[in-house]
Write a protein that binds this DNA or RNA. Structure first.
Length: 734
DNA sequence: CGGTAATTCGTTTTT
DNA sequence: CGAATTACCG
């Protein structure tokens, strides 16, 4: 591969960022400025042009998705991915290091990774052992506090030397206890992965020297979102005179709540006085109104590093603003606009609905369902966090690590096998007293007492032991199906015979397929690895965020939080719920820092849009069952009129609300009830001609289901076949 | 012990 | 309002 083809199509600044390979480099890359392109070209340039061996390069991102995208593009440049190149998330890189080196910290290399739920379980267990009332000492808050400490780089052992625990003696003590419990279970939580890697490097200079020598070139993506531990980690690896390239955009720093410190990027030049700085200011994504509108908002932040983005897409629609009466109408209007955009030739997949908080997705989902529009929700209840999938995974975890108390707790009685709370409490007590794992506690209990329950416990433990046969060698999906069969999970769900159970079975089937995909994708590597396929699989799923699995499907509207949308782009963006208290969120409104982060978040959301951007707000919003009165977000006022266009809905004002002027008509409030037409009983004559507000006229072909869940298969003259819920659809008989 | 009824509780954003 | 945890009875 030639220099020319690597640099082809890059603008002068991008080229400079690629070619400045020696010494520290700060790339300030605005939204849509081709940052990923620069990073991947740089890797290709280092390898192909400078002749740097791939193993000397480390590239770190925040999400697996970003890592995957980079990997793909590097492959394209180089015609194959060099195996020795380390390219991954902070967390996955740390896991890889710890799997080799954690012995230096006196820990076992066979550790499991605890997710947030597991970690909360540990806190609860700890409170129980300390006889502390969870009502008084909120487990969630304690877990959060511990997590903050970890993000800030504090271990309990630092307590003596430092004052960072700030008089919070009880929590500091609980933190120590929490770490002890984790260690007893041979488990690490997310924070530990980073924190212990830093600790490892600090305590064993020999190990640090090894990795430092290896990685002569380090690249860090999204540097503005690094927290203290990540900053330390990068600093340790890069050393004094590092070829360290960090890429980021201070305006897109949106993770302060997770410990990210925007100063890491703002102070890069102070940390590395000899650093070169490249600013990428050309936006290749958005039209002028979108870019200008978004920039105008973020410019209201004080202490901002100035940066002037520009675009050559000077034409384009203004930013649309729509004020709805309530959240329902807001959703209806958004869906209506999506449909009309699709009528105009766009695909559903070109549209994304972005909101501040996950719970806002609900109304939009309902509306999309009404019109039978396919959609995907990113985040919310993630696949690997669904109860049944977590259960199944817990079985696998327990097979690998008998000391995984949280996994055992989860599945010991699922499906019900007569080992209930009391038994578990007794076992747990023994475990606490004798310093045993929960499984050992159970064993002790079962061998010391007779009776029916003890027999059941023995049977269960023996079964688990038997299941451990072959887990080192068998393909993951085979172990997975074995667990589903033999544990009785599958049978229990089948016997339930409810739609929920049905969907769970579906999820589990999908899970097994996923495991098989894993096996196939890694088949050639697995034999040569020291660790078993199952172990590697468990590492991987532990670090998967929902976004990582997200594949854009051309026919699907995407729904996600603004946070999740970072790094993505869509031709048409709907940024919804633009109201005080929601966006900016109430919890961030009291201090200036919080407000500025919200503003950056707003900037991130707006700059996802390529062609059109629609901002919506509602006057009334249902929350906790009661109605709240909302006022429009201050961010709306911060967009100059020149780029903004207020629009009203045609269809929304007519017909549906009986021609009432819903806005200025003087307090007539829209009720939430749905039209029940064609009739209440749901008995709809097939062949009946109907008129739909959006789809137009059509003929009913089939009626499925009964009561409020009746669905109609309708062939519309204009848009073809649709399946529609009677309960929701506003149908008129004609 | 296990299922159902009652009550409580909550909403930020996530690797 | 709805999910999730707890209380209670069979």
């Amino acid at each position: 591969m030639s220099v020319e083809s690597i640099l082809e199509g890059l603008n002068p600044e991008q080229t400079r960022a690629v070619k400045t390979t020696e010494g520290p480099l700060l790339v300030l890359a605005g939204a849509g400025s081709g940052k990923t392109r620069v990073l991947t070209s740089r890797i290709a340039y280092l390898i192909e042009v400078c002749g740097i061996p791939a193993e000397s390069i480390l590239a770190v991102t925040f999400t697996n998705k970003a890592a995957g995208e980079m990997r793909e593009r590097v492959e394209k440049h180089l015609g194959g991915e060099p195996r020795e190149l380390w390219l991954g998330t902070f967390h996955s890189v740390c896991v890889r290091i710890l799997r080799r080196e954690i012995g230096h910290l006196g820990r076992s290399r066979g550790f499991v990774i605890y997710d947030e739920g597991d970690s909360l379980g540990v806190v609860k267990e700890l409170l129980k052992r300390r006889s502390l009332d969870p009502k008084v000492h909120d487990p969630k808050r304690i877990r959060w506090r511990i997590d903050q400490w970890k993000n800030a780089g504090w271990l309990p052992s630092h307590l003596a030397q430092e004052s960072g625990f700030g008089g919070d003696e009880l929590n500091a003590d609980l933190y120590a206890g929490y770490q002890k419990l984790l260690a007893d279970s041979n488990a690490l939580d997310f924070g530990d992965l980073l924190l212990l890697t830093v600790e490892l490097f600090r305590r064993t200079p020999k190990v640090l020297a090894h990795y430092r020598r290896r990685w002569q070139y380090i690249l860090v993506d999204e540097y503005q979102d690094t927290n203290r531990v990540q900053y330390d980690l990068v600093g340790l690896l890069a050393g004094e005179r590092a070829n360290l390239c960090v890429v980021g955009d201070p305006d897109q720093s949106i993770y302060a709540w997770r410990g990210a410190d925007i100063r890491n990027i703002l102070d890069f030049e102070r940390d590395h006085p000899e650093a070169a700085v490249v600013k990428l200011e050309q936006n290749y994504r958005s039209t002028q109104p979108i870019l200008s509108g978004a920039t105008a908002v973020v410019k209201n932040n004080a202490g901002r590093k100035d940066k002037e983005m520009f675009t050559e897409r000077s034409s384009g629609a203004k930013i649309a603003r729509f004020d709805a009466l309530n959240d329902r109408e807001e959703a209806q209007e958004v869906v209506r606009r999506i449909l009309s955009s699709v009528d105009g030739g766009a695909s559903f997949g070109a549209h994304a609905i972005l909101y501040r908080t996950n719970n806002q997705s609900r109304v939009f989902e309902e509306e999309l369902l009404k019109y039978d529009i396919a959609y995907t929700v990113v985040g919310g209840v993630r696949f690997y966090e669904r109860a049944e999938v977590k259960d199944a995974l817990a079985y696998l975890r327990l097979l690998v690590n008998p000391r995984d108390d949280q996994a055992l707790r989860r599945i010991v009685n699922r499906p019900a096998r007569g080992i209930g709370k009391t038994t578990l409490d007794r076992a747990s007590e023994r475990a606490a007293r004798g310093g045993l794992s929960l499984q050992e506690g159970l064993l002790e209990y079962a061998s010391e007492s007779g009776g029916r329950t003890a027999a059941k416990v023995r049977a269960f433990l023996e079964w688990i032991e038997a299941m451990r046969e072959g887990i080192k060698t068998d393909p993951v999906h085979e172990i997975a199906s074995r667990v589903l069969e033999e544990s009785g999970m599958r049978r229990a769900l089948e016997n339930e015979a409810t739609p929920e159970a049905e969907s769970r079975l579906g999820n589990l089937a999908e899970w097994v397929v996923g495991a098989e995909d894993f096996h196939l994708a890694n088949a050639e590597v697995l034999g040569s690895e020291e660790r078993s396929g199952l172990e590697i699989y468990l590492d991987q799923v532990a670090l998967i965020a929902d976004l990582d699995n997200y594949r854009e499907r051309a026919e699907c509207v995407s729904l996600m939080t603004v946070h999740s949308s970072k790094g993505l782009e869509f031709p048409h963006i709907f940024l919804v719920g633009m109201e005080e208290g929601i966006f900016p969120h109430a919890s961030a409104m009291s201090d200036e820092d919080g407000l500025e982060e919200e503003r950056r978040l707003c900037y991130v959301g707006m700059t996802r849009a390529m062609q059109t951007l629609t901002l919506t707000a509602a006057d009334e919003r249902r929350r906790f069952g009661s109605v709240n009165y909302q006022s429009p977000s201050r961010f709306l006022d911060e967009i100059p009129d020149e780029w903004l266009e207020e629009t009203t809905s045609e269809a929304g004002r007519r017909g549906r609300y009986g021609g009432r002027s819903v806005r200025s008509g003087g307090g007539s409030s829209l009720d939430y009830s749905y039209s029940q037409e064609p009739n209440e009983s749901g008995a709809v004559p097939e062949g009946q001609r109907v008129r739909h507000a959006v789809f137009g006229d059509g003929t009913i072909l089939q009626s499925v289901g009964s009561g409020t869940n009746t669905k109609l298969r309708i062939r519309f003259d204009r848009v073809g076949m649709k399946t529609i819920m009677v309960r929701y659809a506003n149908l008129d008989l004609i």
